[in-house]
C-alpha cells in the first residue's frame, strides 16, 4: 500500500486523521513542508477551524502552491471538512477568497426552523448522487459525523457525488479529477468512515 502525507496548516486535530489512516493500513505522515506535499504519493488535506485563518496559514507556508502542484501532477488528494470548504472559490466565513480548485461558494447555514441548531453537529445520512471509487460500498442509510456551520455550494452539479440534508439538501462529497473531498469527518464516522479512507488509500486518482 502507498504512503500519504497529511497537510499540517495549524487547522484542527490532524492526529485523529492520522490514527484512522493507521487503522486501515495507510502509512501516513503529518507534514508542514510544502516540498513533501508536492512529492507525496497521496495527499490528505484535513481541517477544522475558520476559513480566514486557514487560508492565511496555508499561504504563509507556501502550502497553497504545493497543493496546486500536487493536484496538477495527478496526486490523489482527499479534502476533509474545512479542507473541502477552502477548495472552492469563496467562503462567506471571514469573507475569504479560497483556493478555487472547484468552482462555487461556501455559505453559512441560515435556517428557518428555530429547533435546528447551528453548527450542524452529529450523524447524518449521506446519499450517493453519482458513483465515485472513494464512495464505493456506500449503502442507503449509512451515516457520517458532521460538525460545520458553513456548507459548500459548487457551481456545477457534476462535481457533486453525495448529498446530505439539513432543512435543505447540500453537497457533502464533491470532487474533480484526482481531487475528492467530504464535508463530514470519515475519521470519526466509525466503520463506514474507515471504509472511505481505505478506498481512498487504493484510489488511483481517476474516476
Amino acid at each position: 500500500m502507498s504512503r500519504a502525507v497529511i497537510v499540517d496548516y495549524d487547522a484542527g486535530n490532524l492526529r485523529s486523521v492520522h490514527r484512522a489512516c493507521h487503522e486501515v493500513g495507510l502509512d501516513a505522515e503529518i507534514v508542514a513542508d510544502p516540498a513533501q506535499v508536492v512529492s507525496a504519493e497521496r495527499v490528505i488535506f484535513p481541517g477544522v477551524g475558520a476559513a480566514g485563518s486557514a487560508m492565511k496559514s496555508l499561504k504563509a507556508r507556501g502550502m497553497d502552491q504545493a497543493l496546486h502542484e500536487a493536484l496538477d501532477k495527478g496526486t490523489p488528494t482527499l479534502g476533509i471538512c474545512l479542507g473541502l470548504q477552502i477548495s472552492l472559490d469563496y467562503s462567506e466565513e471571514n469573507d475569504t477568497t479560497t483556493l478555487g480548485l472547484i468552482g462555487g461558494n461556501v455559505r453559512r447555514f441560515a435556517l428557518d426552523d428555530p429547533a435546528l441548531k447551528v453548527p450542524h453537529m452529529g450523524w447524518n445520512e449521506v446519499v450517493l448522487k453519482k458513483p465515485h471509487p472513494v464512495l464505493e460500498g456506500l449503502e442507503p442509510g449509512d451515516e457520517f459525523y458532521f460538525v460545520h456551520a458553513y456548507y459548500p455550494e459548487p457551481a456545477e452539479a457534476d462535481c457533486v457525488y453525495a448529498e446530505s440534508e439539513y432543512e435543505h439538501p447540500f453537497a457533502c462529497a464533491i470532487g474533480r479529477g484526482n481531487y475528492f473531498a467530504t464535508q463530514f469527518h470519515p475519521e470519526k464516522s466509525g466503520r463506514v468512515g474507515l471504509r472511505l479512507i481505505s478506498r481512498f488509500a487504493q484510489w488511483d486518482g481517476t474516476c
Binding site: R19, E23, K188
Partner: peptide, 8 residues
Amino acid sequence: VAEQVFIP
C-alpha cells in the same frame, strides 16, 4: 481509546 475508537 483514540487509537481504537473512531467516533467523537
